[in-house]
Design a protein around this nucleic acid. Structure first.
Length: 546
RNA sequence: GUUCCGGUAGCUCAGAGGAUAGAGCAACAGCCUCCUAAGCUGUAGGUCGAGGGUUCGACUCCCUCCCGGAACGCCA
């Protein structure tokens, strides 16, 4: 809630007390239509039933008990019962020096109270290049982490490296087969092998570095270590190019090395959460909300995917986080119940684990859907997409939509660097501001001055709208963080840019009067600070010129 | 069959109890002797998948159904 909303809420609470001797929660909203004021409340309508009176009448009665402060120019009651507050632009003027002084700290809040969140995302198996289907999770997780930090949470970003399971065995066999083929020895890839060209390249590199020695000796261990390392390095590099980094890369294999999986299974057995059937060990997840029980030790003695993942979440919880957030693809939604069930058994803290599901991205090329699979190697890599479309366009694109949206990514469109791409709209607003600030400095030796308090020369509806938007930034951050909706920030960016463009187009910034010019420069500088900060949250650069 | 998402303007998507349902792109009509026109201004475009229900009020909540995507392994 903004300062002004807090003040208006207080006014309403007092008036409600006086008029009806009632104490109710006050809901303040910002009307879409400026005709309906700057803030409004549905209070009168919510009371209509209890009081058995017409909402308009109730509204008028409440308003009659409000002593109108200076910052409010008008209060009116409109059908069907809204109470609308029109505020003076001057009420927003304090905001300008505030933002200029706080700079990028503006919009931060202590909502998170420094609670520590661990957020796990991407976690793509190191069995090949990362592809565009993974980029959505990467963009979402990174942006969400930054927003949470901005809202006062401590955040650890984590990537779970599946370097322990059967898929790595298949990876090694795939590398080995390609290595043999490199020396013209007959070899076939395993049935579940990886056919991507990056595997062929990797085998060739190994051949160049080590010659044919692995034809004579067993290369399994070397292929395994080198394969995972280099493929993971490639993934890290691609993510870094997308502006996505992690604090922790957690190795699944390390769980085995430290007996964490074994310990976890033993604990589950000891506490009576398991039973044997058909030669396998089952976990009674159905007692904890799962639709059926799950196997954790297969009849061949191996673990299922779930087993080390339970151990992994147990390890994460033991580090003392207040919450674990997993961002998973929509194809994993059926996995949630069993994981949470297992965590409930072990710790009773299943509510500390929250799983955000993002729907899969359908990639369209030449009007046709491109099905992606790492095994087949038929995938459009993230690297190619970044090369062609650029980091900013990709980040903006993914940050625009709710995680629930089933998105179509039209590659032909994404690659086009035209006005069709809305990222430029926001970046252009920033570049325009910088251009003006430079021009004023160069030609008139004028620059923004946070000491200025008087903005009366700037009375204008475009300025007022712009300031009103700047005013809501902290509330936008809090909402985006608490509801975990990254796209709220992106929509805010668009709105802010649009009001900046409108202001720029209708009102001359650099004018004859130095003082008035500096006042306007202050508004621009404040806008620039917020725009750049918000863009930073979603991982988009704010260029000085375009 | 069960579970999870989605169905809103020609297209891509916001909105999640309130006012005349909004943006971008595409379409149409204007605006550069003037701080970058990657911009601004205006017009047009909607049975919010369908039908019931709850409510003073439903695109929003509940139920049923239709369509699309995903998942329902001792795969990962």
């Amino acid at each position: 809630m903004t300062n002004l909303e807090t003040k208006i809420t207080a006014l309403l609470q007092d008036a409600l007390k006086e008029a009806y001797d009632l104490d109710r929660p006050i809901h303040i909203e910002t009307p879409k239509d400026k005709e309906n004021g700057d803030f409004s409340t549905n209070l009168a309508m919510t009371l209509a039933r209890d009081l058995r009176k017409n909402p308009l009448e109730i509204g008028e009665t409440i308003v009659a008990h409000i002593e109108k402060p200076d910052f409010i120019t008008k209060i009116d009651v409109k059908r069907p019962g809204f109470i609308n507050f029109h505020i003076a632009q001057s009420a927003l003027h304090d905001l300008i020096p505030t933002i200029l002084t706080m700079q990028e700290a503006y919009g931060s809040s202590d909502m998170g109270k420094n609670r520590h969140y661990n957020i796990e995302f991407v976690s793509v198996n190191p069995t090949g290049d990362i592809h565009v289907g993974h980029a959505r999770g990467a963009a979402a997780g990174e942006a969400m982490s930054r927003i949470l930090k901005k809202a006062g949470f401590a955040v650890t970003k984590e990537y779970y490296v599946n370097d322990g399971g059967n898929q790595i065995h298949n990876l090694v066999l795939s590398i080995q087969a390609r290595y043999y083929q490199h020396f013209n020895k007959e070899a076939t890839l395993p049935e579940d092998g990886y056919h991507g060209k990056e595997i062929t390249n990797l085998a060739r590199t190994i051949a160049e570095e080590h010659g044919n020695r692995f034809l004579k000796e067993d290369g399994y261990a070397y292929f395994r270590k080198t394969g995972v390392e280099r493929l993971l390095d490639g993934i890290k590099q691609d993510l870094a190019n997308l502006g996505v980094t992690f604090d922790i890369y957690f190795s699944e294999a390390s769980l085995y090395e430290e007996n964490k999986v074994e310990e976890t299974v033993k604990t589950l057995i000891d506490q009576g959460f398991t039973y044997e059937k058909d030669g396998a060990l089952w976990l009674k997840t159905s007692d904890y909300g799962d639709e059926k029980d799950r196997v954790i030790v297969k009849s061949d003695g191996n673990y299922t995917y779930l087993t080390p993942d339970i151990a992994y979440h147990r390890v994460k919880l033991s580090r003392g986080y207040d919450k674990l957030i997993d961002i998973l693809g929509g194809d994993h939604h059926g996995y949630i119940d069993r994981l949470k069930a297992a965590i409930a058994m072990l710790t009773g803290e299943a509510d500390k684990v929250e799983i955000d599901i993002l729907q899969m991205v359908k990639v369209i090329q030449d009007g046709q859907e491109v099905k992606m699979s790492k095994r087949s190697g038929k995938a459009i890599t993230l690297r190619d997409l970044i090369d062609e479309a650029g980091k900013d366009a990709i980040r903006y694109f993914f940050a625009r939509h709710s995680l629930n949206t089933h998105m179509d990514l039209d590659l032909d469109l994404a690659i086009r660097k035209s006005t069709e791409n809305p990222v430029f709209y926001a970046q252009y607003a920033h570049a325009r501001i910088v251009t003006l600030l430079k021009k004023a400095q160069r030609e008139r030796d004028l620059k923004p001055d946070p000491a200025i308090k008087d903005y009366s020369a700037l009375e204008d509806e475009h300025v007022k709208t712009l300031l009103g938007t700047l005013n809501t930034y902290p509330a936008v951050i809090e909402e985006a963080a608490s509801k975990r909706l990254v796209h709220r920030v992106t929509h805010y960016i668009h709105t802010l840019a649009s009001h900046l463009h409108a202001y720029y187009s209708h009102v001359p910034i650099i004018v004859e009067d130095d003082q008035v010019t500096v006042q306007a420069l202050n508004v621009l500088k404040a806008t620039k600070i917020v725009l750049k900060d918000a863009l930073e949250l979603i991982g988009v650069d704010a260029p000085d010129s375009m």
